[in-house]
Each structure stands twice: as C-alpha cells, then as structure tokens.
Design a protein around this nucleic acid. Sequence first.
DNA 1: CGAAGGCCAGAC
DNA 2: TCTGGCCTTCGT
Length: 808
Amino acid sequence: MIAKVIVDVPVKQTDKPFDYFIPDSFLPLVQPGIRVVVPFGPRKLLGFVIDIEEESQLTNLKEIESIIDHEPVLTDELIELGDWLSKTALCLKISAYQAMLPAAMKASYKKYLIITDGKELNERWPGCLTFLTDYENKEWAQILKTASQEEISIIQKALRENMVALEQVVHDKSTSKKIKMIRTELTKDDLQKAYDQLDKRAKKQKNVLAYFLNEDHGTPIPLTSLIKKADAGRSAINHLVDKGLLIEEEVEQLRDPYAHSEIEKTTPLPLTNEQQGVLEPIVQDIEEDKHQVYLCHGVTGSGKTEIYMQAIDKVIKQGKEAIVLVPEIALTPQMVHRFKGRFGSDVAVLHSGLSRGEKYDEWRKINRGEVSVVVGARSAIFASFKKLGIIIIDEEHETSYKQEENPRYHARDVAIFRGRFHGCPVVLGSATPSLESYARAQKGVYKLAPLYNRINQQPLPEVMMIDMREELRSGNRSMFSKPLFSKLTDRLEKGEQSVLFLNRRGYSTFVMCRDCGYVIECPHCDISLTYHRRQGRLKCHYCGYEESLPDRCPSCESEYMRYFGTGTQKVEEALTQLLPEARVIRMDVDTTKKKGAHEKLLKAFGDGKADILLGTQMIAKGLDFPNVTLVGVLAADSMLHLPDFRASEKTFQLLTQVAGRAGRHHLKGEVVVQSYTPDHYAIVDAGAHDYQGFYQKEMYARHQRQYPPYFFLTLITVSHPDFPKVVDVTQKITRFLKQKLTNKAMILGPVAPPIPRIKDRYRYQCMIKYKNEPDLIKILKECQNHFQEAYTKDALKITIDINPYLLM
DNA sequence: CGAAGGCCAGAC
DNA sequence: TCTGGCCTTCGT
C-alpha cells in the first residue's frame, strides 16, 4: 500500500503529494490525517498522510520511517478543506495544514552528534576524543555555537569520513504536562499496622499515613496537595514510597486554563418573542441538517448570546458539535464564563492568551471528542469536530477574522465551507454587520435575522455629540470637552464608573521640532515614532524600533521639541492632574502584554477598584459592567481619515460598539462623543443608532468609488530593500495582469502604499478591482510563480491578498 | 527548506 | 591541486 504524503518543505516545488511505501507492520496504523516521518532526500521530515492508494506510478519508493499520530489529527473534511484553502488563498498545502493545527504540532528537527569510530578518530587526530566525547549526543546547532573553529573543522572532516555522524530526530513541540500522584494499594488494616510500626520520631511519615487512613484511601492524590494536606515533606513521602507502602506515579494531566475559576452554572433564560423568532428557523435547520447562513443583526444588548447558547444546546442534545468564534479582543473572561457557565466542562477555549501547551491540550480535548463546544478566536474555525451542528461567528464585522499572513483566509469563508460540508447553519452575529454581509442578506444569499429590541427594554444610551472645534474656539484646549469633564466629575461623585476610549496608545503620536518642523521618524520604516512617556522612549509601532528621546532636534539642534497628538498615556497623565481623586485603569497593548494582565485589569474594574477605565480598541468589545453609566469617546475621527475605504465603516462600528458599553443594566447610560468632524455620517448615524441610515449612505459611497461589496479587490504588494527594483517588478506585474485579465477588470497602480517602507524594505502595490474574473486565481498563481521565480535569490517578496482588509 | 554536488577563484 | 564559498538542483 502507498501513502500520499504532503511533506514539511514550504516551497512551490514540493507542494504536491509524495508517494511512500507503507511497511506491512505499519499497515494497520497508517490512515489519512495522521502525521508520519518520511525520508526526503538526505534528511527526515514530518509529513501529513492525505490519502492511501493501492499503487503508485513510481517505482523504488521509500518507506514511511515512523508514525507520529495514532489517531488522525486531520479529518477527511479538514484534508479537503486544506486543499481548498491552498487554492483559494494561494498558499502551500503544508502551510494550510499547519494553520489548522496548534503550533505545538509543528515539527522541530534536531541533530545530535554521535561517534561511530573512536579508534580511527584518535589515530587521525590524536587527542580529539577529549572534546568529541564532550560533544557526543549534544545538539549539533549548540555545538556549532560553542565549539572552536578548529574543532568544527575536525568534526566536519570526520563527518565526511564517517567517523562521526549526525543523527536526525524529528519530533513535534508538543509536551504533555505530567504530575506526580501518590496512592496506596494497602488495605486500611495494613495501613494501620504500618502506622503503628513507625518510629515515634517519624512524625511526618505518620501524618502522611494518617491522611490515607482518614480519607478515602483508594484514590490517588497529587503529591503537591498531599504535602499540604498531610503537613509532611517530600522526604517523608519518599521514605514511605521506598518502603513500598505508597506508590508514586506520573500521570499525564491536561492543562486546564480555567481550572481555578469557579463558574456558576446557568440555565437557559426565557426568550422574548423576537429572540424566539430568530432561534426557531435556526433550530429547524439543525434538526434537518440544512446549511443556511444567517445574519443576526441585533443591537447591543438584544440577547444574541442567549440565542447562540440555546441553539448550541439543541446541537449538543443531537449529539453534534458547535464552534463559536469571537474576536480575540472580545474573548474576555466574561464571554468565556457565559459559555462555561452554561455548558461546563463540555467547552474548550482557544485564544492567544493561552500558552502553547495549553492550546495543545484544549485542542486535544476537541480531537478526542471530550468536548462538544469550542469558543475561540479565528483559528478555532478549524476545530477537528466530526459532526458539526452549528457555527457561530460573533461580531461578524471584525477584521480580525481575516488572517493577515499566509494562508490569508477569512474565517467566515471557512465557516461557510464547513457549514456546507456538514449541512449545518452558520450564524453571523453583529450589531453593525459588515457591508459585505448585510448586502448579501439584502440579496437573500444570507437570511437576515433582525433583533431590534434590547431584552431589558432599556433604551439605547443617549449620545451627545461634541464639536471639538467649538470647544477650541471657546478657549478649551484640553483633550476633554466641558460637558465630558463635568459628566466625569458627576460620575465620580455618584460613585458610578466611566469608560474612556481613545484608539491610540503611547503618549503622543509624533514628536516635532517647533523651530524647523522636523518630525522624528523610524530609521527603518517611513512612519513617525510614538513617544512612550513611562520609559521615556520613542517607539515604532511597526517594527518595534526604539530610541531614547533626544533633548535637542536632531536636525537643527533646537531645544523646542513638542509632542503632538494624544495617546492613552497622555490622557492618563491629564486625568491624574485634573481629577487627582479618580482611580484610573489604563488598558492597551502596553499594559496588557503580560499573561493574565488583561483579566486582572478587567476584574479590578469590575470589582469597583477604579472609577475610570481608559483604553484602546480592546475595551470596545463585550465588556459588560453594570456600574458603567458614562462612556466617552475622546477622538471619534481618529480612524476616519485613514487611507482605507473602510474607514467610515470602521468608525461607525467602533462608535456603536463603544456606545453599547454604557447603561446595559438598570442604570441609565450616557455617551459623549468628541470629534472635529461631527457632521460626518459615520459619526452622526452612530450617535443616532441608525445602522440603516449609515448602510444606505456608505453603500452609495462604495458604489461611487467602485469598492466592495460592489467590486471585489485583490491587492498585490511587492517588497524589497531596493526601491527601483520594487517599482520595476510592480510595473511588470501590472502589465502582466492587464494582459491576462478580462478588460472589465480594473488594475490600479503601481502605487506606493501609505507606509512606503517597513523594516528597511520598500513596498509597492497594485490593486485589482473586478466583478467576475473566472480565471483570477489561475492568473494570480501564474503571476506569483513567474515573478517569484525570477527573483527568489533577491529576497523579493510578493504578497497576494484576495479580499484584503488591510490596505497598508 | 536544507543537503549535496558542481564550479570557480585564490592559495600554495 | 586543494579549499572554501557560492549557486543550482533535487527531493517519492
């Protein structure tokens, strides 16, 4: 029998199945979807078995060397999905499969030095064994780092003459966590006897035996808890183990990131008529195994999550499984608690806050069928469930569902692929659906499921628009308008909480010399550096470059350097000056980098340990604090003028989301939005909670400017350290595309992107707008192959992004 | 991707 | 003539 294997070599030439002979002894173990180690040229590699066939076109096949998985890690569906991904996202098959699995399952290749002929070595290079034996069984990469030039050249010669060898080992990065358990096989009587026989002075040992005498002595107990409970030391237990009274063994333990959180069980809530109306057709589809995409357009607080949970409940009762996608930043403990509270240990959670090992363990729960629900960020869409009953994508409009690196897939597209495969509904939920999805719902491609009322009948919070130009005219030069400031003070007095939102971290956006106008820029990117007050340093938000703040202008030596633009750090500073009694929690990438920091800050705020929560994007989603009655948006137009055709849409969505944070419970909420362009429809309509109005206007604008959803886009970005080369290649690509695509396709460019240089690489772009290009993928692939091939040695990078969400 | 083989330039 | 470095090729 022959196995078709996709090998772990990420290049075009090997992007196809390779045939391997399955030795008879492996026959019962090899099945599609497992990982195997195969010889490939002179080395050994990890590969995915995607198919098994009777025979091969080729002769002299090599054999599969070893088997990694005993259960498939990819189902037949996922194998097919990977194939589809590689076609639609123009990526390599191996990258597609790797993207579907936790990082811990990626191969790591290590080589170890072994001495094969010590005698000969000693004759050839007398004395060489002294250092060679030190290096034996050590990792080759380490030896290369530590050994001297001389030693390495001897080893290399010895390698050629086969006196030493490098043994290659392939494993994945998965490690399981082991804990030591202590148990006893003795009866209570025997234990008692042993207890009595112990020396009087062996007090600690007696404690331990007493524990087993008192407790249900048959159950094993983790060593660490035994030490605590029996008030004994490691050594006392060791003695007992040595005597054969107790048994110590290592048990593999699945890491459970939520082991220590006590979550209260919740029961389904009664639904409103409106919710019922949305749930019913979904449940019917679940029962009939029918695929249909629903767009659940529900205002904030309309009870979407409850609908999701009741639909999932139905799915579980049918013995099927559910995937719930939530944007990374919204994957707050609050959200997780809701699902854990309803479905208990039947839920796996996957998000970036988990360690590699934790993610791997959560994934294994899914793969073994120990859970039937997964709640997770984008990549959870690949959960290896076998009988999917529903897929839910919450906050459907979030751009984080699109992966911005290879494979550049959109979780929504994958969800629909899987929904079709399993014959199950896909529910897209949002208070502010993306124009693409809403337009599809209007056309009847998706089924619209609207929720216009909040469950508690609370009115949507009132939004007050502040024209910051007026404020400036009336002499207020601070970042807080008078109304916002007085409301903040008011909440402080009442003991209610406020949330302040500013979509910009750091202290100031740029530093400029007031004498000559020089702006300090990143030496590696064409972008200004952001000043971070706490460290007193200037940072590049694109490449991570840092430098200390110069005290004089690097250009004209002037001392008058000024900070322009406001970041969260500056707001924090201003708050402590203006409202010294207010306790402020700041949340942005800088304060939440550490593991668990996110949760900790939110918990502190929820517990009332602060009056004001100040933050970026990440506080806009999903937060639900009953005591928050004021939400302030400091600069509503900060996103509006970005060079992105979705700028208005993003502004509208963000404002609506932020506004939804206020007054979710019995206290009435208020929202203050400060802006320099308060007349812009994205801001006006968000203030009026008018999605329809915004949709109409934005659709008109998109139509005028020929953007999605009226046209599809594909963005090609070329990058290289050498500027003329980048322009030249982009020009050639543009010409190539013009020649190949239909004359209805619009090919724009070549143009320089908004940030023309990142990490010392110049960038140039070409954009395709089209409605219907049946051969697009084929032509793009040709383009990629043709130009990449011609420039591989040149470090030239061509990125093709179909349906891009990031235009920079 | 990474190993290996071919090829060329410079050292002796 | 040998060595090291660079480039190309190949992989079931």
